[in-house]
Design a protein around this nucleic acid. Structure first.
Lengths: 341, 341
DNA sequence: ATGAAAGCGCTAACAA
DNA sequence: TTGTTAGCGCTTTCAT
């Protein structure tokens, strides 16, 4: 590994000081009244020696790394993968880079990752929190560490967040089902179930039923553990789909659940939408290609990412206008296909 | 943003030197013969003051960042998303973190990202290269910068790489099609078409036909531009699927292509496998859920990620045994479903 | 068994 | 218009 050119190398080659070179290369030449000619010589020599600033040294000095951290549950999940991409692009547009990590929905891993990212002096953090790590988050807030939650938020706290409007979107989905004539609607929800993305969707479901004067039946709500979705669906789904109180429609609260349900419905030999209707919160490619197409609530994933970055960078650069709202709900969209009858 | 505890803070609080504290906290206490008791006091104080080492400072001093870079075409693509996850996990297991970026299959962006990652003093790089940036790669090699290519390799060069065995996998796929009675097989390939992942698959296709004494027809090969897949498929696919020389089977050279073809086949109102068979290189969830199930060549994505990390870290830490092979082909697996008749 | 001092490469306050 | 100096927080050599 060959040694790289440093400021000092340029300074020495030119017989000037590091300071001068630093100023010029940081575009502060004019502002500090440095000779046009000297400036040109500096630039030329920098190019000649293929100078690249050492970001570590700069960070050490300035206390800023121009890097932000992003923690999601699982970067290989389509929803988060798209989100990561949006965050990456939005950050790049403003000259920041992104360190990604997956928490696997585990609070302890989340905390370790927060720690490691801070160790690396990220300037701020976008976090899809497990919500079981309140302590860790409080610590960040206490230290006034720039933080924006994404996808989920902490109820009754002032922490900044960007999320889809899960409540409204969910309500719309259930209304749609009702309009299509469904009254007994089974809900597949994920545990941990205190995730606001989930609780808000459940609340939307309940309110939609209530508004239509349909009683909410607890046994229609299935809770599926995050780390064992397919097997658990296989075991639980038949309970919902058989017997005389069986549901006529299934509402999956995220894409993983919908996908797993789809598989199981197929392997039970049932037909959508005749034997059972299916609607999903969160739209993925699969649903448009499947036949019949699966009706789904589409989340503004890219917008969420972009918005979160804007919020975070404004915090970091203290550009926040006093009236900037930093708890934002983005609208969802119902994509109607053929899975609801 | 509150100031964090530094080595000096601990040293002062304890009335000892930074050196001592550093040694103890790096586990070199015994090796340097430091009092058990002193060591305990250091640890206690470190915990008390919630000391976290400043990685930038350490990196600046040691020239190592314990971070590796990963550049793929698009992190929101399922194939790369899974790969990223594998890389993340494998790196974490050895105490490294990962900086991800998407090159969008553009050589210039690739080069910028390489630059920025090096600026950040990543200790090494895993790169799914566009292959149009040979210069940049040569520069890395010349600087002896630790580098492992993934998914694609540079023909006739000694650069380390990890890839699926695209040739063998492709041959197997086409053999399968032939065995199912198909003779006229349309191939959907992506451009840029010099990607070895693609050329190797094409080569496998050609050789499989040849071995079966089936003539290779150029007009059966469709080239679809990376950045305009769906529209291009819509326009081109009918050419393959109509007329008297129409193909009876379609072989998509990656999951994007297969997905787009699937959409278009549906919208043309054709049935799989009766009207046309479909096989895909690279297996994704969608294919197992779709009915009929889509037969696909499954790539060992996780293994590829893991393997690449191992190779890279061995390079970085110069642990490479002399006989370690650093050009590795990993076997694929044909997942037979119902899309080929 | 412990410490002093140098230095990684950079920037910023202050001099000249 | 340019240079000097002092660190940022850490590790490491060399003293003691």
């Amino acid at each position: 590994l060959k040694k790289k050119t440093s400021l000092a190398d340029i300074a020495k080659a030119l017989g000037v000081s590091k300071t001068l070179v630093s100023m010029v290369l940081n575009g502060k030449g004019n502002e500090n009244g440095i000779n046009e000619d000297t400036q040109k010589r500096v630039w030329a020599k920098a190019k000649e020696l293929n100078y690249k600033p050492n970001i570590m040294a700069r960070s050490l000095r300035t206390g800023r790394s121009h890097t932000i951290g992003l923690i999601v549950a699982d970067i290989s999940n389509a929803f988060y993968a798209r989100m990561c991409r949006a965050v990456e692009d939005a950050a790049a547009r403003r000259g920041y880079y992104v360190l990604f990590s997956s928490s696997d929905e585990k609070a302890q891993k989340e905390q370790e990752l927060i720690q490691m990212l801070r160790d690396r002096l990220v300037d701020g953090l976008i976090l899809s929190t497990t919500l079981e790590n309140k302590e860790g988050i409080e610590e960040l807030e206490k230290a006034e560490f720039p933080l924006v939650l994404i996808d989920r938020f902490i109820p009754n706290e002032s922490t900044a967040f960007v999320t889809a409007d899960n409540y409204a979107g969910s309500k719309e989905a259930v209304h749609h089902l009702i309009k299509k004539g469904h009254q007994r609607i089974g809900v597949l929800k994920i545990s941990p179930s205190y995730l606001t993305s989930i609780t808000e969707r459940v609340r939307g479901y309940q309110d939609a039923l209530q508004e239509a004067n349909i009683p909410v039946a607890d046994q229609h709500l299935l809770e599926i553990p995050y780390d064992n979705i397919q097997a658990s669906i296989k075991e639980e789904l038949p309970k919902l789909l058989t017997g005389e109180n069986r549901v006529t429609a299934l509402y999956a609260l995220n894409n993983n659940l919908a996908t797993a349900a789809l598989k199981e419905i197929h392997s039970m030999g049932l037909k959508i939408p005749d034997d059972v209707a299916l609607i999903s919160f969160d739209d993925i490619d699969l649903f448009s290609i499947h036949s019949p197409g699966i009706t789904a609530v589409s989340q503004p994933v890219s917008d969420m990412g972009t918005h979160a970055v804007e919020l975070l960078l404004n915090k970091i650069e203290s550009k926040k206008n006093a009236d900037e709202n930093d708890q934002v709900y983005l609208p969802t969209e119902l994509i109607e296909r053929d899975s609801c009858g």
